[in-house]
Amino acid sequence: MRRAIHLIEEVDFRPMNSRRPLEYLTWLTRYKREDEERAAPELTSGMSIRSREIDLVGAFYAVGITGHPQFKAVTLWDCHGGWDGGWRQMMEIYQGVDERLFLSDIDDLRFSAYSRPLGAAPGCPPLGQAPAAELYLFENARVRPGAALDYLHAVRTERAPLLAEHGHTLVGLYEVLFCDTEAVTVWAVSLDDHLATQRARDAALGLDDEVEPDPRLLDWGKRARDYLEGRWRETLLAPFPGCRLAPGSPPG
């Protein structure tokens, strides 16, 4: 079985205009739904590569109050067929640097976009089977050089069972490719379970005496430092209506 390859992109919109993320996410989810019926990939003017193998699984509005720059969108893509499938199709559009690469229907809508290729770590659930949820917990961790897969193994074997008890479903365990210092994890969670988890952690710190504490949540933070080096952050993402992971969306 070949390794699953994905892409995550973080998009910023400036000057601060709250309508721009809405316009972008509406445009993106609409045209990618159209691509599901496409028989063959095609490079088009205004929309770049059109392909069903480059599959938009998650389109999210970043919940700014959890630590994202405001306003921001995040997208999660599945490259069907891995390196020789959707990834190859994306790379082929750069051969000859076709002028259509420089035309877009959303020119001047985005301020910046930061894309990172992701490689599924051993034990990573198939992205096509990810459940729809109210919220997604998005972790970006800077690890010691070369420690990404070791860290993700610890997440899968130690943290995932713990968070499952708190209503979190593991969606992705990803090594950020073309570097050796970054890992990404994604979890599906309801708002109620998110809040309950935070209160259980507060209680373990002695800061909430109305709920049951779970000191294991603190223990994981200490364990994670065996692998981390530098910045670690978790933020929340809200799935945009029309994407695969939004509640009520038709299955892919």
Rank of each mutant, 00 (worst) to 15 (best):
A188V: 00
S190R: 02
P145H: 07
V155E: 12
F240W: 15
G252W: 15
L162C: 02
V57K: 07
D105I: 00
A160I: 01
H68Y: 15
D193H: 11
R88F: 07
D107N: 12
W220E: 12
R38H: 02
W77D: 11
V74Y: 05
K32W: 08
G46P: 03
L237K: 02
G221M: 09
G81V: 01
P145M: 06
L43P: 08
I65R: 11
E139D: 15
Q95N: 13
A148I: 01
C243P: 08
E175A: 10
Y94G: 01
E175T: 04
L162V: 00
R52F: 01
D180E: 14
T169K: 03
G167I: 00
Q198C: 10
L218E: 11
R199C: 01
L127W: 10
V176Y: 06
G252H: 15
R19A: 14
A133P: 11
E9V: 12
D202Q: 13
T157Y: 07
A130I: 03
D35L: 02
A62P: 09
E229N: 10
K32Q: 14
L135W: 10
L109E: 07
G248H: 03
R33M: 05
L207N: 12
P145L: 07
A62H: 08
A154S: 12
G67L: 08
P213D: 05
R231I: 06
V189R: 00
G221K: 04
G128P: 12
S115V: 09
P250D: 12
G146V: 05
G119T: 05
P15W: 05
E10N: 11
P145Q: 09
T169S: 10
R223G: 06
H194F: 15
L245Y: 08
E10H: 14
A147L: 05
G167D: 03
Y114Q: 15
R116F: 10
A120S: 15
F71P: 14
E210I: 03
Q95L: 10
V211G: 06
I65K: 10
Y151V: 01
A224P: 09
L218G: 07
S104N: 07
G242I: 01
W220Y: 15
I5E: 15
E134C: 07
T169P: 00
G58Y: 11
L127S: 09
Y174L: 00
A147H: 12
P239H: 01
S115F: 11
V74A: 03
H194E: 12
D78Q: 12
P131I: 02
V155R: 04
L25R: 03
H166G: 04
W83E: 12
A40P: 00
R30C: 01
V97T: 09
G67P: 06
P247F: 06
Y61F: 14
S48I: 09
T75L: 10
P126Q: 10
I8R: 14
A73W: 04
D150N: 10
M91T: 03
V176F: 04
W220P: 08
E158K: 06
Y94F: 13
A130P: 09
H68G: 05
R38K: 10
A204Y: 05
R216A: 12
F71W: 14
L237I: 04
A59M: 09
L163T: 02
Q89V: 01
S104D: 10
P69G: 05
Y31H: 13
A39I: 00
E42P: 02
E10S: 13
L205I: 00
R30G: 04
L109M: 07
M1V: 13
V171C: 03
L191D: 13
Q198I: 07
P15K: 04
G67M: 08
K32M: 08
